[in-house]
Design a binder for these strands. Structure first.
Length: 416
RNA sequence: GUGAGUGUAGCUCAGCCGGUUAGAGCAUCUGACUGUGGCUCAGAGGGUCGGGGGUUCGAAUCCCCUCACUCACCCCA
């Protein structure tokens, strides 16, 4: 085969697309009742937008971005995530001047140059939400509740909601130091990756799955003990409100985010039904990012759902296609033209009509109608045109009803 | 970037201790039934056996290289 999709990219075809549409519809419905409005952002951005927000030493920036030069010599990057572009737009259009909270959602493709794997693609789709301008943890709780509502509404079950607080620019450095002090002496007991992490991002050691590392880090100081007054209060508030709203969740102090801009609240939703890439959605608060982009010190919080990771968790029963209301079998060339006209007239009334285009035996036309799953069939022959009468055959029951060739009469017979 | 596994028809796969023209099921198309589908039966189309090289009288089968896909590490939605 000569041409195929690039590595890590995929075509999404029927009937799978029906599940995608289902998820999108549910999401839009729920965003609406929470007051989130859609925004559409460019897929390309200036490279420094991502470096600035995601962090220079993050894996995404270091080795996963699709970056190239445009014809003007500018460095351009296909967005690896949505929040950076969103914040750029938020500042660029002064959206912070709108009444708070400002709430937006988006759906679209993201790109990361990674080795493809189950549920991990180089072009992948996210549904994201961002809520701006409110610091109160009630908003955090509400956002997480909305996320739960979307995922449950889409038909997902057995999800784990994990939350934590990773502190802010005031308390995180102290924690990082405490953690490094604790790990320093035991460094030899850790895997090579963790030894590297010790320098780059020691928090990530908490997330390592190597048994020796889990043992070696046992007894390490939890982030939560190092939160400053403000962060602690915020986290306590979040826990309280989540409980109040009955959003099932667990506290996971080892939860680590790969992006630099997160502050305070961080959360992740996982499913045990997936492979090793089991995070179906994740998000957190980013109170410093807008300011970083040249806007006012506006707080923000958001999440992103990974489409490819929730699609396989949704029942195949939703893949049931719809079927044509009527298939028209013309017998000769004259009838064939008549069928073309009749089909258009019926479509005016919102019916899905299929006709047979080439000349083939009635047998073969019927077979085609059956294969398409057409609800009804009519045969157009010399007799029918002469008498202006057709027989509408119900393909499920096999029953036949004689009807005059009149649009309203036909519709009545088809819908019966 | 690292490791392992898999590449034969549109799909799922058999064939792989080398041996004529490479098979099955499903799917597609046609006919039996000149104007009525599904069931049944008969038939047809569809293959560079991932690609290249080597061993051999002879390679889908054995060896080497390569490419692609898959899963896992890493990382993350």
């Amino acid at each position: 085969m000569k041409y195929k999709t690039l590595k890590g990219l995929q075509d999404i075809l029927p009937p799978d697309i029906l599940i995608w549409q289902h998820i999108e519809t549910i999401s839009r419905d729920i965003f609406k009742i929470y007051g989130y409005q859609e925004i559409r952002l460019p897929i390309l951005e200036s490279t420094d937008i991502f470096i600035r927000s995601i962090g220079e030493t993050s894996d995404i920036v270091e080795k996963e971005m699709y970056t190239f030069q445009d014809k003007g010599g500018r460095s351009i990057t296909l967005r690896p995530e949505g929040t950076a572009s969103f914040v750029r737009a938020y500042v660029e259009h002064h959206l912070y001047n709108n009444a708070v909270p400002q709430k937006y959602y988006y759906m679209g493709p993201m790109f990361r140059y990674e080795r493809p794997q189950a549920y991990r693609y180089r072009q992948f789709y996210q549904i994201g939400a961002e809520a701006m301008g409110i610091e109160d943890p009630k908003l955090d709780a509400e956002l997480i509740s909305m996320l739960a509502r979307i995922l449950n509404g889409a038909g997902l079950e057995n999800l784990n909601f994990e939350i934590t607080s990773i502190g802010c620019k005031h308390c995180r450095p102290a924690y990082k130091n405490a953690l490094k002090n604790f790990l320093q002496s035991k460094l030899n007991g850790f895997c090579g990756d963790c030894q590297r992490r010790f320098e780059i991002n020691p928090l990530r050691i908490l997330d390592c799955k190597v048994p020796d590392c889990i043992a070696s880090r046992h007894g390490s100081p939890p982030v939560i003990d190092y939160l400053c007054e403000e962060c602690k209060g915020h986290f306590d508030g979040l826990k309280h409100y989540l409980k109040m709203l009955r959003v099932p969740h667990t506290i996971n102090p080892n939860l680590v985010r790969g992006l630099d801009y997160y502050t305070k609240t961080a959360f992740e939703v996982t499913s045990e039904s997936l492979g090793s890439q089991k995070a179906v959605a994740a998000g957190g608060r980013y109170d410093g990012l807008v300011n970083e982009f040249g806007g006012p010190p506006a707080p923000g919080i958001g999440f992103a759902i990974g489409m490819e990771r929730i699609v396989p968790l949704i029942k195949d029963s939703l893949k049931k296609s719809e079927y044509p209301d009527l298939f028209i079998c013309p017998i000769g060339p004259e009838e064939s033209e008549e069928a073309l006209i009749l089909a258009e007239q019926l479509r005016e009334n919102g019916l899905w009509i299929e006709i047979n285009y080439d000349k083939s035996s009635l047998k073969s036309q019927m077979r085609k109608a059956g294969r398409l799953g057409a609800r009804n069939v009519i045969v157009l022959g010399e007799d029918e045109l002469k008498k202006r009468e057709v027989v509408v055959k119900d393909m499920m029951s096999g029953t036949e009803v004689k009807t005059s060739i009149d649009i309203q009469e036909l519709i009545k017979a088809i819908k019966a």
